[in-house]
Design a protein around this nucleic acid. Sequence first.
DNA 1: AACTCCTGTAACGATATGGTTACGCATTAT
DNA 2: ATAATGCGTAACCATATCGTTACAGGAGTT
Lengths: 126, 126
Amino acid sequence: MRHRSVTYSTARHSEATFQALADPTRRAVLDLLRRGAQPAGQIASAFPVSRPAISKHLRLLRRAHLVREHREGRHRVYQLNPEPLRAVDSWIEQYRQFWTASLNNLKSFVEAEYAREQEADSRKHK
Amino acid sequence: MRHRSVTYSTARHSEATFQALADPTRRAVLDLLRRGAQPAGQIASAFPVSRPAISKHLRLLRRAHLVREHREGRHRVYQLNPEPLRAVDSWIEQYRQFWTASLNNLKSFVEAEYAREQEADSRKHK
DNA sequence: AACTCCTGTAACGATATGGTTACGCATTAT
DNA sequence: ATAATGCGTAACCATATCGTTACAGGAGTT
């Protein structure tokens, strides 16, 4: 029988953002845009893939709201929008406490937790 | 002519980690393990997919070093290892300044940056 | 008006991803 | 010894992903 874990819903948040960050080229595009807004072609020239490939990455980043685009003459200037990264940041935040604790402490804590749960479970088995 | 952007190399770091986090089920598994170590079957029972599917997710998480596994009787207990998340955190860190600044300030900053670059570039065009 | 520049989209192909069922192998229970 | 439990892997399938080349269309240039 399945539980449909409660934790699932929290992980569903910011799906598009995590998805967008999965690709190294897209992360590099964001890194590039930190230095300032640029037109699409100039962005593409910084990478070893074709311009249409970058165009598709930009579309994905646009749909994840990680970049904003506006026309300027015949250029399309792309600008970083870091807002969605806040969600990623707050997800990570929940893990920060784990690496501030020493690994030894973590290990014993986790093992104790499991031992406790196992004991609570032991009634269901024989 | 291609530049092979310098920023690329920084984005290549922690490739496996970003990859692992791209899937909502895997993020939910990590969220679940924050509450304590658990055997594989118990993890699987929290999700609406088959046990082998979870087994494959766990393998990927193992290879990304986001979880550790050890045998305990006939169970295989999985334990969170948040260490690789530090790399993600420090990547995000570089963006934190952008959302602490007001969006208006950011906008003008970025636009000024682009204007400056465009001017520097204008000698190459006609 | 004709031409060039900049960029998005379409169509296609190779590979990756995420799911399923069937199976094998240890470990514990009977 | 035999059966049952727990879990990883293999084989397979559908769809997604990321790249390419060819093409189209709007904005400046001549």
